Computed example of a mutant assay.
Amino acid sequence: MADEKFYYNPATGEVTQGKVDSWDSRMGPYDTREEAEQAIAIAAERTKRADAADQADDNWGATPSWERRN
């Protein structure tokens, strides 16, 4: 069964169909060539959302009384 997915190589900027490059030289898989061409923008948006979720998770409200310095 052939790999029908598309991958983006950040080192070369090329989009390939199938796992042409090694795992450390590709981003994906993506369903379409157009999606693969947007790999950097997609990754940046996902990182932005993950950072926001991490920040929200870190903000638990007021510091507990046993951790406060008076």
Rank of each mutant, 00 (worst) to 15 (best):
F6N: 02
Y8P: 08
S25R: 14
V15M: 01
A62D: 13
A2G: 12
E67K: 11
N70Y: 13
A62H: 11
A41W: 04
E37F: 12
N9H: 02
Y30H: 05
K19E: 13
S25P: 11
V15R: 01
A62V: 10
A36I: 15
T47Q: 10
E67C: 12
R69T: 15
P64D: 00
A50R: 03
Y8V: 06
Q55C: 04
A52L: 03
N59T: 12
I42P: 05
D21P: 10
A44Q: 09
D54C: 07
F6E: 02
N9P: 03
Q38D: 14
Y8N: 06
G28H: 01
P64L: 00
Y30A: 02
G61Y: 02
A39E: 00
E34D: 12
R26K: 09
Y7D: 04
N9Q: 07
G18V: 00
D24S: 15
A43I: 02
K5F: 09
P64G: 00
M1T: 13
A43F: 04
E45H: 01
P10H: 00
M1Y: 12
W23Q: 15
Q17D: 00
E35I: 11
E4G: 06
V20A: 02
F6G: 01
N70A: 09
A50T: 10
N9S: 06
Q17I: 05
A43Y: 09
R26C: 04
T12M: 07
T47Y: 07
R49M: 04
A56L: 09
R49L: 11
S65I: 15
A41E: 11
